[in-house]
């Protein structure tokens, strides 16, 4: 495999409701990532991730191209997925030898719609979607199954929320941050038992962008490139009754293929939009106790849909860029109850 590194990363401040249009949100983020990369346009390849249903308008990604710098025309593609998979497509393009540099971005504006209801449109259109099961209720089914099986408690879930929000105090991009006592969190009513509001990721509007560069060129433009040493993604069955919701088989396979366990992991950025999912993912990836989880606050601090996975990779890269970690793991998820998962291993020199 060719050596490919993330050399820059930028993200918006993820507000609950951003009044700017998608291009106005994206443009400064793309400009910042490009400027920090030290790479001159044009990029050999550009790839983005987004989904129309969030803002209820078809072809959302088409107008977003206005922010990409697509003139003169560019080699470009788009996945109707989280930007983490756009990064994967760009990494593949570099592996084919057709590109040395790539710009990757994604955006998501969830605020116009009712997100948990919108996400119910991801389900089997004939027998499940007509029942309108919202995303929080489905996650609650998974949480209940996991609590029963693991013997853990709702207090363990609240501990993840409290830690994430506390860590997010150091993250200027977060939607939710602060000090919360676990007992106070547990006093809150259920949204869908056993999940309370703190167990669920906030709804955020936002965007992120990063730049990939191959080989020695990455060393030239970046003091400490974050090298992609392994990347893989896998899907699970969609039907909720057909898989063991208390495990993430696809994350386990992706983690093995990406080589997570080959050496110790300093920091892991896990895309867990619900507290219990962090435990499921840690187990699936076999992360050690001393691996720091989600120092950014994770998706529980800011969860712009279609962006939060790419942000995990960007945050994991940032720890390499600033020298605070030597080896990091990033994870992205998509679909109901962790149906699809991507794992990326990053290392410094």
């Amino acid at each position: 495999m060719r050596e490919v590194a993330i050399v820059s990363f930028a993200q918006s401040r993820h507000a609950r409701r951003d009044l700017r249009n998608e291009v106005e949100i994206l443009l400064p983020v793309v400009q910042e990532a490009v400027q920090r990369s030290g790479v001159e346009r044009p990029f050999d390849f550009t790839c983005s991730g987004s989904t129309d249903f969030l803002q209820g308008q078809p072809f959302a990604f088409v107008l977003a191209l206005d922010a990409a710098g697509a003139w003169p025309p560019i080699a470009e593609s788009h996945v109707e997925m989280d930007g983490a998979w756009a990064l994967y497509e760009a990494w593949v393009k570099i592996q084919t030898g057709q590109a040395e540099t790539a710009l990757v971005y994604s955006f998501g504006k969830s605020s116009p719609g009712d997100l948990p209801e919108v996400l119910s449109r991801q389900l089997d259109p004939y027998v499940v979607a007509p029942l309108w099961p919202d995303s929080v209720s489905l996650a609650a089914l998974q949480a209940r199954a996991w609590l029963e099986k693991s013997g853990r408690s709702e207090r363990d879930l609240a501990a993840v929320a409290a830690r994430s929000r506390r860590d997010a105090k150091g993250n200027p991009h977060a939607t939710v941050a602060g000090d919360f006592a676990i007992d106070d969190l547990l006093d809150a009513p259920y949204l869908a038992s056993p999940l309370r509001k703190h167990d669920c990721a906030p709804i955020s509007d936002g965007a992120a962008a990063l730049v990939l560069v191959a080989g020695d060129r990455a060393r030239q433009v970046c003091e400490r490139p974050a090298w992609i040493r392994g990347i893989d993604h896998r899907a699970d069955l969609h039907a909720l009754g057909a898989r063991d919701l208390t495990r993430s088989a696809s994350t386990r396979i992706a983690g093995e293929k990406a080589g997570v366990a080959r050496r110790p992991v300093d920091v892991a950025e896990l895309h867990a939009p619900f507290t219990h999912q962090e435990y499921i993912l840690r187990e699936a990836l076999g992360l050690a106790e001393d691996t720091q989880i989600n120092p950014s606050g994770g998706a529980l601090a800011a969860n712009p849909m279609m962006v939060a996975g790419l942000i995990r990779i960007g945050e994991a890269a940032r720890r390499i860029h600033d020298g605070s970690a030597r080896r990091t793991v990033a994870h992205a998820t998509s679909g109901p109850c962790l149906q699809q998962n991507l794992v990326c291993v990053l290392e410094g020199e």
Partner: peptide
């Protein structure tokens, strides 16, 4: 009216345990 239908179609396309990508241009 199906959002990201590759998720629902993963079962019919034998994608469980495999990489699954969804393109839209």
């Amino acid at each position: 009216g199906v959002m990201m239908p590759e998720l629902y179609l993963a079962d019919a396309l034998g994608a469980a345990g495999k990489p699954l990508l969804r393109v839209h241009t």
